[in-house]
Design a protein around this nucleic acid. Structure first.
Lengths: 334, 334
DNA sequence: TAGCCTAGTGTCAGCGCTGACGCCAACGCT
DNA sequence: AGCGTTGGCGTCAGCGCTGACACTAGGCTA
């Protein structure tokens, strides 16, 4: 392998040039206190001249922190994810850190390897969209000292902060809207993923009916894809032929549901109203445009990064978990 | 800041346990030759027991390579980008490396900072979707020894490989299709971005007409967004009222063009045919579904990563540049 | 039998940086 | 005058690893 890397200036080079000790240069570079303004300026000038940049590897070897954070998600191609990643990257960058990215594709083993890898790069912390069944794994890493922000799940543990959308509120909003619109037989297509998360959402689906006097509808489960949504809708309609509304776990599924319902010769929203969850770009382009609970991905990215920074700087304090509000967007499908 | 990181096992710990020198353990861990099978096994067992993982920082400090690669792009939220990033991440991971991600938002200064940052993390190489006007900058880093794969632009330089879609072929395909369909007044909405890249595409737009005996159409430029596409279409139609086809720089712009054309009371494709470039997901969901030149993002991601690996392992050889084929997808807008 | 090679392992320095601590001069206080 | 304090800087070791090289025993060649 060609090794044509140009020799970079080191602390010693700068120090020699200025006529101070390397330690002093280090102090200047790291903005430590106790340096006279005169020395500071001379050092900075030399840094400039020699185009000195600290070697992050050496620094990390000493400090055990590399000024990096890891983002570990399912897949980039998920319509939900990129905007979060973008926001995380921005905030991370602004904090003077660089972001690793790894996608576990919902395989907990992969996720484990990724955490291990990031750990050996001495990341300051990681933001994780957990793979199914990986709670224990995350807890273990947290115990080892890794700072973790968990998105869309809840783990009570030191070194772990949790950030979630207020999906309960979203579900309530949606169900109320349907009830107010006169819908009486409302089904839900839930996700086949994490039972922990699932339970919470399904419970809020139930409770949304509580003081309406109307019976909560049937819940079916399907994969969180367009075709999954279609399958779910068909199952629902098979179970309850007089269904007049469907609540889907996400927009992708809602779009699948719309197609399935239409394929059955029913009209949306006249015969069946449909609500999604996410507000992905596509939702405005389909016919009918999808009514949905908008989850603001940038906001989530910001919150999540903020939580991680708190965790990193925390003097051992127990982290709290944050809830990100959601917004109800009425379009044509209800 | 709480420092509750658990002490990790080091080479020395493993060495002590087995009763060999750290250097021997290092050799085993790195699969170097010249170790007896018996020793290897004993070391591996101890590695397992102590759950030893090499400290990448220390290793990188010695070797000047961190087994990481950087992906530097415009924005994650670009509909084109995530699939590329995903593929790059997969391939990178498979090669035993971890991926950094940074998005420069088309600001060359940001890009420069990002390259600098990645450089100080001793990345093995970077894949760059160049910010406008950053060719010289890239060339400089290449000279310093950074391995760079440039996407969608061309730089002849040691340590640089280039990968591009065969956009010329795409443009030809599209124009031929329009001509074969009897269209005679074809306009193009090009990008306001990089004049280097722009020129190549526009030239192929011209040459596609060459042996048709038909006059190449007008070219206008606009930002590469939906609204940019709409603006471009309006400009085009203002310039040539009898236009019967539009070729857009990407699908986003094509979608904008469709809306603009329809808003003018014209029908797509009856009055004006429209072709995009990319084949983003949305293109199948709009009405009429968009005819487009599909750029296979996964394929690009694979090629690009492959090129980077070659560059990293190259014994100083001059890298060649790769061209990724495109595919023509006929839907309803032509 | 001397000489040479090879496989397998060890020794040692040092990558570039920072934590811990030490030193000195200047200053303030009683 | 004597003493403590503080600001400003230096010294030194060592983070965990690998490159370069040294060493040893055994086998092979002439």
């Amino acid at each position: 392998m060609a090794d044509d890397r140009v020799k970079e200036a080191t602390l010693d080079d700068v120090a020699r040039r200025v006529g101070v000790s390397p330690r002093t240069v280090s102090r200047v570079v790291n903005n430590e206190a106790g340096i006279s303004e005169a020395t500071r300026l001379r050092v900075l000038a030399a840094v400039e001249q020699l185009n000195y940049r600290p070697n992050m590897m050496a620094r990390a070897l000493m400090t055990k922190r590399s000024r990096t954070v890891g983002l570990v998600g399912g897949e980039m191609t998920d319509p939900f994810f990129p905007a979060v990643a973008e926001a995380v990257e921005q905030r991370t960058w602004e904090s003077g850190r660089t972001m690793f990215f790894a996608s576990h594709r919902n395989d907990p083993n992969r996720q484990a390897e990724m955490l291990q890898s990031l750990w050996s790069y001495a990341v300051d912390g990681v933001i994780v969209f957990p793979a199914p069944g990986s709670i224990k794994q995350l807890r273990d890493y947290a115990r080892r000292g890794l700072r973790i922000v968990v998105v869309d799940d809840f783990i009570r543990s030191p070194n772990v902060a949790c950030v979630q959308f207020d999906l309960e509120a979203g579900v309530h909003l949606g169900v109320r809207h349907l009830l107010d619109g006169g819908r009486r037989k409302i089904g839900m297509i839930a996700s086949t993923a994490s039972s922990r998360r699932r339970r919470r959402r399904e419970r809020s689906f139930q409770t949304a009916f509580d003081d309406s006097g109307i019976k909560p509808g049937t819940v079916v489960r399907a994969p969180t894809t367009v075709s999954g949504g279609a399958a779910g809708a068909n199952e629902l309609l098979g179970l309850e032929s007089d269904l007049d509304a469907i609540f889907a776990y996400n927009d992708l599924m809602a779009i699948g549901a719309i197609r399935a319902v239409q394929a059955l010769g029913l009209r949306v929203p006249e015969d069946v109203a449909i609500i999604g969850f996410d507000d992905i770009e596509m939702s405005t382009f389909i016919t009918p445009a999808l009514t949905t609970i908008r989850l603001d991905r940038s906001l989530l990215g910001n919150e999540v990064t903020h939580a991680l920074h708190n965790l990193i700087d925390a003097p051992g304090g127990t982290p709290e978990s944050a809830v990100v509000p959601v917004e109800f967007v009425v379009r044509e499908s209800t």
